[in-house]
């Protein structure tokens, strides 16, 4: 048995290709007002989307992203053979509720804010294995996340500067095996890394260690260096986490600061929008990937990029019990040309 490098899976090689057939991003108003606003396929007028509860609003956002990705790829639901979806809410329910009308075999995914990379890697593997279209969808919603993880919307609690703003956004990629850009080249699955951070309001610090670990392993396993890529996009480390990540790499002698950017910093204008250390939530990296990064790779603006979504695998229960917060990061390498 020929063994691959630990944790890294090859999706596109000499015999097979795995690519993103179509993709779409649906976001809320605040995200639409941000610097990437014009890149998104759908911007809602408010966070409610005509639904009575925030949970249903989020589900609807997922459905929008999925339907638009299908339309853009000229597919119907019947063409999709597996449905991978994830979100932040209890037991991954938003995804289950958005999937219940799809009539597609469903696998719920949870990787906190790293879920977009997780679903994308899973969909890529299933596409290659089954030679079919698979959907990778994730979402988050400020109001539904806030009421589950923090405080009621109208509570005047104080947010520390390290806190991040959960994005109201969803992204959907439909993977297939066509020989076309953007290619899903490789994926490195993250190892759960706990750096001892206990502050649930400082998730950037909880996740930066995991991002450093996964990116390093990806460089090692693929014999590449940061300069081989023209973009390294971390999920949502925010300002605090990004600074930590860059310093970790400089310490090691590999400088990523020339090509690094963070979805949590790209989604909002932090001078104008009150998001503290930046955006977060599964929808943050999902919408930036589907709205900005993938079109860039498809057009050739980016030749070869790494998408490293990061997640803080915490729950309020564990945090209140005094446990530190484990982080994870999955890396997906996406290329304009077949490598």
């Amino acid at each position: 048995m020929t063994q691959g490098k630990k944790g890294t899976i090859t999706l596109t090689d000499n015999e097979n290709t795995v690519s993103v057939h179509s993709y779409a991003a649906a976001v809320g108003k605040m995200e639409g007002d941000g610097p990437l606003g014009s890149y998104f396929d759908y911007v809602s007028k408010g966070a409610q989307l005509g639904e009575p509860t925030w949970e249903k609003s989020e589900s609807k956002l997922q459905k929008y992203a999925f339907d638009m990705a299908l339309r853009k790829g000229q597919l119907t639901r019947e063409d999709v053979s597996f449905y991978f979806a994830g979100d932040l809410l209890n037991q991954c329910t938003v995804s289950a509720y958005s999937a219940r009308e799809s009539n597609i075999p469903y696998l719920g995914q949870y990787g906190a804010c790293s879920t977009m990379a997780q679903t994308l890697a899973m969909a890529g593997v299933f596409s290659r294995g089954n030679n079919s279209y698979c959907a990778a969808i994730t979402s988050s919603h400020f109001c539904s996340a806030e009421r589950q993880f923090r405080f009621p919307i109208n509570y005047g609690g104080v947010r520390p500067p390290t806190a991040q703003w959960t994005a109201t956004a969803a992204g959907c990629c439909i993977t297939g095996t066509e020989d076309k850009s953007p290619y899903l080249s490789k994926a490195t699955i993250g190892i759960v890394r706990d750096m001892g951070e206990k502050d649930a309001n400082n998730m950037g610090a909880a996740m930066a260690g995991a991002a450093y670990d996964s990116l390093s392993r990806h460089f090692d396993n693929t014999n590449t260096t940061p300069s081989d890529y023209d973009g390294i996009f971390t999920g949502d480390l925010g300002q605090v986490g990004s600074d930590i990540l860059k310093e970790l790499f400089i310490k090691e002698g590999r400088d990523i600061s020339m090509v690094h950017n963070d979805c949590g910093l790209m989604l909002y204008d932090r001078n104008e929008q009150d998001v503290h250390a930046g955006g977060s939530g599964c929808g943050c990296s999902a919408s930036v990937l589907c709205g900005y990064i993938l079109p860039g790779v498809e057009s050739g603006k980016f030749k070869r990029i790494l998408f490293a979504a990061t997640g803080a695998l915490m729950s309020t229960t564990f945090v209140q019990q005094g446990e530190s917060i484990p982080g994870i990061s999955h890396v997906v390498e996406i290329t304009h040309e077949r490598i």
Partner: peptide
């Protein structure tokens, strides 16, 4: 009615 805080930024 509940407030949509994402509109208030």
């Amino acid at each position: 009615k509940k407030t949509d805080r994402t509109l208030q930024e």
